[in-house]
Design a protein around this nucleic acid. Structure first.
Length: 279
DNA sequence: GACCAGGACGACC
DNA sequence: GGTCGTCATGGT
């Protein structure tokens, strides 16, 4: 295990930004978070408003630095936003978003999570996805890697490719997926029969989005979330109910996302602002 | 015990 | 092309 300090990173804000449902908070220590991505996991501890500490396996260091998007300079994007937009509110949005980063998620995790997300609250999405991992993922005892103080703590990774065909619709029903169970099973079938993040990253944003929308339960919004959060298409600008409220309240109806080649990151800030302003 | 949830879909017009 | 009722269940 190795530990690294992540600058300009607030894991608490990342956790409550609605972009990822594979992060859990230690109920006994709310400064401590556990991240699952694919078949990997790590610990991240909140140190201060601009510093978090990552602890992971030595060989996964590069993976997690990319996962937390440490190469991207967010102040450049903020500067462009402030210059082009010019409204009063974008100062508040940029200020509130300090330390918030956009995670580079695994394609399968992201696809399944956001199909689950429709008509569900964020806590309910977390419960359902973590249940899926508990049944079909691999179990790790944290005590083995982080010491005796973690006796009894277990973590479950996302299901691996070779286990996709084991996913059963009745189990999903029991886990509370509701009417989305059928969507999830067919998405796993698509993943197993060749649909991959690698290919979707090659064919361009619009073509990738069209292919995603061919899946049952994937419409414009979810396709945009998957394109943005797991395929690297930062121009994607998912419009959910909160962004529509934002556009109505602060933009006279529409935010001109076409002005920005990384509009999706600005969308993450705006979404976070709508959920946390005045708190 | 209502009420709503980071929407999508099919049936209609 | 647009609108509208329906979808199954967990949180609050």
């Amino acid at each position: 295990m190795l530990s690294i300090l992540l600058n300009n990173t607030d894991i608490g804000k990342i956790y409550s930004s609605g972009q990822c449902f594979g992060i859990s908070q230690n109920p006994y220590n709310t400064n401590e978070y556990w991240c699952v991505s694919g078949q990997r996991f790590c610990r991240v501890v909140y140190k201060s408003s601009l510093v978090s500490e990552l602890t992971c396996f030595d060989e996964d260091k590069k993976y997690w630095l990319n996962y937390f998007d440490m190469e991207t300079n967010y102040s450049d994007i903020a500067k462009e936003y402030l210059e082009k937009d010019g409204s009063e509110v974008c100062k508040d949005i940029v200020g509130l978003s300090a330390g918030l980063r956009m995670l580079n998620q695994e394609f399968p995790d992201c696809l399944i999570s956001f199909i689950t997300s429709q008509r569900k609250s964020v806590p309910a999405i977390r419960t359902a996805v973590s249940g899926l991992c508990r049944i079909y993922g691999k179990c790790y005892n944290l005590e083995d890697y982080f010491g005796s103080e973690y006796a009894g703590f277990e973590i479950f990774t996302f299901p691996a490719q070779e286990d996709y065909d084991k996913v059963d619709i009745e189990v999903l029903d029991d886990l509370g997926f509701g009417y989305r169970s059928l969507y999830i099973v067919s998405a796993f079938t698509a993943l197993q029969s060749g649909m991959s993040g690698e290919e979707l990253r090659k064919i361009g944003y619009l073509e990738a989005k069209d292919r995603l929308k061919c899946l049952h339960g994937v419409g414009e919004k979810i396709a945009n979330c998957v394109a943005l959060y797991s395929l690297g298409y930062k121009e994607a600008y998912p419009r959910d109910v909160w962004i529509e409220r934002f556009e109505e309240d602060y933009c006279g109806g529409k935010f001109v996302d076409e002005l920005y080649d990384k509009a999706g990151i600005i969308q993450l800030w705006q979404y976070y602002f709508m959920l946390h302003k005045g708190k």
